[in-house]
Design a protein around this nucleic acid. Structure first.
Lengths: 227, 227
DNA sequence: TCGGCTTATTTTGGATCCAGTATTGGATAT
DNA sequence: ATATCCAATACTGGATCCAAAATAAGCCGA
């Protein structure tokens, strides 16, 4: 290898503009949908969006196809794309599938656990708690995600992690409702600590049970909010 | 509505040309990949393929994005699409995820079973056996798929079924290796009968156990063939 | 005033065209 | 002969342009 002297030194300092327009659009759209900036059911006007993002409709449409595969948007021929709307039955199904897949991920991960990962998990949990106390909902959600996926990724099953990621994304717009109330935030902290303790003890079953409870609370809160 | 007199009468007789080019391309590509006509690892030259299918590259690229989401093809920026190559570890992971998801589907489906569905299952099984005896591998694979999905779909969990479908598709190119040998074909028939009997008895656990065994045999055969 | 039909507008789906990147083949130097 | 650099080529990613479908607006008649 002749090294990268030919490349501009400024490259490293560039603020991570993705190499293709469609990746940029994809990230932007995903953010807008999971944060609720684009509301469930809202039609997606390609022309307007493409203009706003300063790209043509081609990369936009390819990004939308990816999101359709992930269930974040739905498509009707000759009518266009819409942000996906989830019924309570849909949410329940998604959480049930998560239950199945995450149990596997955690069991496998627990078998390969190293002290470093445990430390990382504890650090993530600290962040969750700090953000919770500060009342920063967005930061708390982000730290929460890091906590769970640190664990999932230890399973060494990339497809499994991808499926779980997709399921999380597809309900993100709804989950933000959950983190609103303070009692729920406290419960999250408590449940995370229980999961962490179980993992530390090498008790995968207990960890799975706590995660199931964690999810069940989220579902029942969503039910209350949506009905 | 004033009826469709404006439309050509020949439409009904046309052999199901999908309403959009991209759906047509999608179906065609999926077929080519799952049958092994496009071999794992093969690069997908957009220009050539688009010309052969008599469409432009735009709908082709959108179809490829869908297939990428399903794991049938992989994409590298500025290098293009390639038919996905699965290692033994990949296959094992896919079959493990199938185990988790299909167990759920079968358990839920078993709870809602009706005599009509049972009859349909038996009919599908008859087809499997007939095709098996005739040595028609393609017909047997198709009937096999009908058999399993008749069951899965009874669960009334559309997302779950979609995930399972994707997982089946992603290994179809490899599975055809499995159906090659006669002893395997006989084993498939035997295992299906056991599943059917368990379902008939309302014994979901037994059905799940037999399906797991069914899959495990497929995996070990694949391992033998691939190594 | 209201319902149904026709026409205009909007919006998507698809085709063509252009620009930028990776690959390939060849020429040169060691 | 082999490795390296450079130019030509092939192919992808993206932009613009056109066609077809759906929606909205206007018109006519009852």
């Amino acid at each position: 290898m002749t090294s990268d002297l030919t490349r501009p030194a400024s490259l490293a300092s560039r603020p991570r503009r993705p190499p293709t327009a469609q990746q940029f659009v994809l990230a932007e759209l995903r953010r807008a949908i999971t944060t609720g900036e684009l509301r469930p059911g809202a039609p997606i006007r390609q022309d307007a969006l493409a203009e706003r993002l300063e790209v043509s409709r081609v990369p936009l449409r390819e990004a939308l196809k990816i999101l359709e595969g992930e269930g974040l948007v739905v498509h009707e021929a000759h009518r266009g794309y819409f942000v996906a709307v989830l019924s309570m039955a849909d949410l329940r199904e998604i959480y049930r599938i998560r239950e199945l897949l995450e149990a596997e991920a955690v069991r496998v991960a627990a078998a390969h656990l190293t002290p470093e990962v445990l430390a990382a998990l504890e650090a993530a949990q600290d962040e969750v708690e700090r953000a919770g106390e500060a009342g920063d909902v967005a930061a708390m959600a982000a730290a929460n995600r890091r906590f769970h996926f640190l664990l999932f990724e230890r399973a060494g099953m990339p497809r499994l992690v991808r499926l779980i990621t997709t399921l999380w994304d597809s309900t993100d717009a709804y989950r933000s409702l959950y983190y609103g109330g303070t009692p729920n935030r406290e419960r999250v902290v408590h449940e995370h600590r229980a999961v962490l303790a179980a993992i530390r003890d090498g008790d995968a079953d207990a960890a799975v049970t706590w995660l199931d409870r964690h999810r069940a609370h989220a579902v029942s809160t969503l039910q209350d909010v949506l009905e």
